[in-house]
Amino acid sequence: MAETPRLIATDIDGTLLADDRTVSPRTAAALARITAGGTPVVLVTGRPIRWLELVYDQLAEPLPAICANGAVVYDPVADKVLRADPLDPHLLAEVARRLRAEVPGVSFAVEIVDSRQMRHEAHYPLRWDADLDAIRAVETPEELLAAPAVKLLARAGEQDPDAFLALVAGALEGLAEATHSSYSGLVEISAAGVTKAAGLAWYCARLGIDARDVLAFGDMPNDVPMLTWAGRGVAVANAHRAVLEIADEVTSANSADGVAAYLEQVFGVG
């Protein structure tokens, strides 16, 4: 990427946000100046739509978002889903069948209604959710898998996240995408071909922007497809080793405003 980027794509948690899930004033100001200058910024996240308000409340204006690891493209101004790529119920059932056979004690949750709602098995451990009114336990496995889901979440107690991902991905090879974005032993499953890169590519094509003109930031394995697709992929210093290995460059950590520092240098703002 020789020229100034035409679009900025950034992950949220562990990348744009500090460890306490806040957007620093420096980061918010950098994004505001860049968007005011005419360069679009898009959030590309594993988060569901219902978790975006906590971020938007800290920004000068809500930014377009690619949610659920690429499965949902969202316009916050119109409160409209522009595109969704869910797993259909038949596929969900086959994914669940394979994982129950391969992973002892596995439990599931699903993100439905374009990730505005969540359903989970009674024994699925809830770690954090911003809107408890949007989530509900189901009574039967059939109920869990009855509706299209933009993401299936799988846990099986305390697990090494990378080893657990390898186990799940192996069981689902050729059937669905599996990735992770945390260190808590959670695997996130999407329809085949659905990644952050695919969602971002669709959004950029809509704007007439080529991959080579995109600057992207990330920190976890679910960011790897996006960072390798973009013309310039930048890891924050706190990133997972898989991200550090493929990144074109490394900026300072999320706790040190790494995204803002890099953007200030590229755009001459600060």
Rank of each mutant, 00 (worst) to 15 (best):
C67V: 09
E158H: 11
R98A: 08
E111N: 04
D88C: 04
P64S: 05
P125K: 10
H120T: 05
P104M: 10
P148W: 01
L59Y: 01
S115V: 05
D88Q: 13
E102A: 15
R98G: 05
K151I: 10
A60G: 07
V113S: 12
R100P: 09
S107C: 12
V77Q: 12
V103K: 04
A134Y: 06
Q117T: 14
L82C: 03
L132M: 11
I66M: 04
V138C: 07
V103F: 03
A101N: 15
H123W: 11
G157R: 07
A147G: 05
L153V: 07
P141A: 10
A93G: 11
F108P: 01
K80L: 14
D131V: 09
E94S: 10
V113I: 14
R97T: 15
G105M: 11
Y56W: 11
D114R: 01
C67N: 06
Y74Q: 00
A65W: 00
P104R: 13
V150A: 03
L144E: 02
H123Q: 12
R119I: 09
A96P: 01
A147K: 07
A134W: 05
G105A: 12
Q117W: 14
T140I: 12
A146K: 12
R119N: 05
E139R: 13
Y124A: 14
L87I: 10
P141I: 01
H120S: 06
W128T: 14
P89T: 06
K80C: 11
H123T: 15
R83Q: 12
L92N: 07
V72E: 00
E102P: 11
I135Y: 15
V81H: 08
L152T: 00
